[in-house]
Amino acid sequence: MNIDLSRRGFMKLAGAGVATTSLGAMGFHEAEAAEAAHVRDFKLATTTETRNICTYCSVACGIILYSKGDLAAGEKAELLHIEGDADHPTNRGTLCPKGAALKSYVRAETRLTRPRYRAPGADKFQDISWDEALDKIARAVKDDRDANLIERNAEGVPVNRLTTTGFLAASATTNETAWATWKVVRSLGIVGFDNQARV
């Protein structure tokens, strides 16, 4: 917002239990200011607010994350609440039944918290360290590439094509993740590369 106080900005000021004087400064009459001063402090006043975008559909509603702790200040941040961003032109603060329950996804019991490995024939996952998992992947990629990369076709044209390793990319990640992924995947010669746009 450039000129006017935004809808969000207004709610934040009015809701966060600011002193009567500043309410006066905002153009409230005394009676209203006195009334506002009685209102209990807004529960989320002590949280850190972060602008984000709903991760589900491509309406891409603006949302605000409320967390305890400030990531930007190097603190741990625990997500407490998510609500629609009233300043967002598309959703103007509203959310659908999916967006309204976003926190329940972030904090789902079935969120993954550590790398896991399943051995051939096993009926369970077992824990594995990041280092071990990543080394295993790098080894497998290199071995497969060294064994199966088609460097040149029958005509001798360099084709750098690897068809025995494939990659499906995520359509809820960012453009930046996408670009980092693109670079790594294509530099290996992988041609079987898609995202959810195919389904």
Binding site: I53, C54, T55, Y56, C57, S58, A60, A169, A170, S171, A172, T173, T174, N175, A178, N195, Q196, A197
Partner: peptide, 8 residues
Amino acid sequence: GHSNIQGL
């Protein structure tokens, strides 16, 4: 569909 299917 997805939030960044366009971007990907």
